[in-house]
Structures are given as structure tokens and as C-alpha cells.
Simulated scan of single mutants.
Amino acid sequence: MTDEYDVTSDEDWLDAELKNALDEDYEIELEDAVLSLEIRRIYERAHPASLPRAEYFRELLRLQAELIKLQDWVVATGEKVVVLFEGRDSAGKGGVIKRIAQRLNPRVVRTVALPAPSDREKTQWYFQRYVPHLPAGGEIVLFDRSWYNRAGVERVMGFASEDQVEQFFKDVPEFERMLVRSGIRVVKYWFSITDEEQQMRFLMRIHDPLKQWKLSPMDLQSRVRWEQYTKAKEEMFDRTNIDEAPWYIVPGNDKKRARLNCMDHLLSLMPYHEVEQEEVTLPQRVFNPEYERAVLPPELYVPSKY
């Protein structure tokens, strides 16, 4: 008797994954589905048709399979990779980070999302709080916002003086060149959305109880200061787009396409190859005919409500 799905090729494997292993993906996708009907209607009217769900998941799984190969290559070669994800609030940075890391080993691929600096950290060298999170050999670090906070939110919201911002612009190119010289691959992504798209996404968060936690007073101020953020972003590109660590802009109005495009581009930057793995065999369980499994008290078990 054969399994229901006979996986004999990459295509068959993807078909099997689509049929048998999408529960987690659908659960994540609920974040886009639990909108009020009115907000959903307005949102869909304002957007062109996105990728069909089956096509999106097929490409997502294909790219995630390639990311596993990238991860294995990084471990085998001792490579060090840093990927920065920047962009306006609600631009989709968190969504693509979730999909990149979803099927990877958290001991190899880490996500770093630092809170606001403490009083002590404010007295340190600006880059100091980020340095401990940089990768060792065989690691990939994904920064959900990074040291570019100083060029963006800190500058626009007045948390950094113009002198501090100017010093940052002088320091950051050399800081990143130092990282590259030390053997770290530095990739910088900016997720770009339109004024109208950000407004729509903020309205979705306001009207969706499962998303309201994503809105902070800082996010609301970012709407008021849209033009200031735009000017800050343009100067940041002008002064920090260096050959050793260039910026890459991801158009983000269509979330699904943005995720796939970013993942595909990241893979294209890495000279990875498939690493030969040792064959894994399942050992036989040791069977002791005299062993009897102990009966545990029922209060130890989680109630079976579902």
C-alpha cells in the first residue's frame, strides 16, 4: 500500500506540502482575513487582484525550500549574514521576516527587534547596543528595524539632535564597511508603501481588535509627519547607499508579492549551493517486555476541550 501522495519530485513535494502542511500558513494569513466586512470591502476595492492563494503558497513553499538550502550553506561554510528590514510603519517588514524564518532553524536564523534604548544605552556609543546581536560564523540575523532608527524615527520624532544625526551619517558607512571587511554580508531592505496604503492599513488596525495592539502613539504620529519621514528617508538613501552595503527598495503595496520578491532577491544575492547531508535513519526502539507504563494522575493533563 502506498501513501496517498507519492512524492517523487520537487513538484510532487510541493503539491504534497500544499495539500498536507498549510495549516500554519493559513493561521498566519488570518492576520489579513479578520477584518471588518466594511474595511475589507474598501480595501479590496482599492487594490488590484493579488496572487491567487494556491499560486502564492506554491511560490512561498518553493522559496522557503531554497532558504533551507541557504541556511545549510551558511552553517557548512561559516558564513555570517545580516539582513536589515526598514520602512514606514505598517509597510510589511514583520510579515516578510515571519515567512523567511518560518521553516528555518531558530538557532541559525535569529530575528532581532530591539526596544527603545534604556537610559544607560543612551549614554553608549550609538552602535553599541546592536553589536552583541551581530552573527557569529554559521548564523543569519534579521533586524526588524536597526541602527537606521537614528536616521528615521529618532530624527523625525526629535529623539536625536541634528548633531547626533549628522554624526550617525558620518559613522554608518564606515561601520558597515567594517562589518563587511570582517566577513559579514550586509543586506539592507526598505519596504516602500504609498501614503494611501499606509492610511488604509492603519484604518484596518483601528477597526480590527486582533490588530489594535500593533498601533502605538508613535505610529499615529508617523501619519501626521509623513512628509518629514519622506525627507528623512531620501537623505538616508543619499548618504548611506554604499557599494559595500547598498539599499534595495521593495514595493510593498501588495503584501504577498512583496514577500515573494524580497525572498527571491535575498536568495539571488547569496552564492549558496546545496550542501550534501548525511542520510538520516530512524533507529529501532528498544523494547523491554517487562516495562509497564505508569498511570499518571488525570489532573496532570490539559483538558481536551477541542
Rank of each mutant, 00 (worst) to 15 (best):
S36P: 07
Q128T: 07
V165P: 08
L37P: 13
F287C: 11
E235R: 08
Y189Q: 00
I68F: 01
E292Q: 15
H207D: 07
P246M: 09
L67Q: 04
T230G: 08
E235P: 03
P217L: 02
V109Q: 03
I242N: 06
Y306K: 03
I242H: 05
A65L: 09
W73H: 02
E44R: 15
Y56K: 02
P135A: 06
E227Y: 09
R185D: 12
R40K: 15
P271V: 06
L18H: 07
W147Y: 14
R110F: 04
H207Y: 11
E290S: 14
F202C: 10
M218K: 11
P298N: 13
Y291R: 15
R62M: 06
L203A: 14
F127Y: 14
E38Q: 12
S222C: 03
A101M: 12
I249R: 09
I28D: 09
L35F: 13
P297Y: 07
D23P: 01
T281D: 04
V82S: 06
E24R: 05
S36Y: 02
E166T: 15
L70E: 08
H207T: 08
Y5F: 15
G78M: 04
K93W: 01
Y148V: 01
A49N: 12
G183V: 09
E299D: 15
V82R: 00
L60P: 00
A46M: 12
E154W: 07
D254S: 12
Q284D: 11
L18V: 05
P289S: 15
E27P: 01
K170T: 12
R257L: 11
T8A: 14
E176H: 07
L267R: 01
T240C: 00
V74C: 03
Q128H: 09
Q167K: 14
P271S: 07
G92K: 11
Q221L: 07
K188N: 04
Q64L: 07
Y189R: 04
G94P: 12
D15I: 10
V131C: 03
G94C: 14
E196G: 04
P283W: 02
E24L: 14
R285T: 13
R40W: 07
Q212M: 11
D12E: 12
L203E: 13
R205V: 13
R285S: 15
G95E: 01
V153L: 15
P117I: 00
G95Y: 07
A116T: 15
K256T: 05
S268R: 03
R145K: 08
D15T: 10
D238R: 13
S146T: 02
A46D: 13
F202R: 01
Y272I: 11
V165L: 05
S182T: 08
C262D: 06
I100W: 06
R257M: 03
E66R: 09
P246I: 04
H273I: 12
D72Q: 03
D144F: 02
Y306C: 05
S161C: 12
S182R: 10
M157K: 05
P135R: 00
I100Y: 10
L134H: 00
S90Y: 00
E44K: 15
V83F: 06
P106M: 12
S146R: 00
E276C: 11
R103I: 10
D163E: 14
E29A: 04
K256I: 08
A16T: 13
K122H: 12
L215E: 10
D119I: 15
A113S: 03
Q124R: 14
I68D: 03
V280Q: 15
V172S: 09
L61M: 00
A113F: 01
L22F: 06
Y301W: 06
I184H: 06
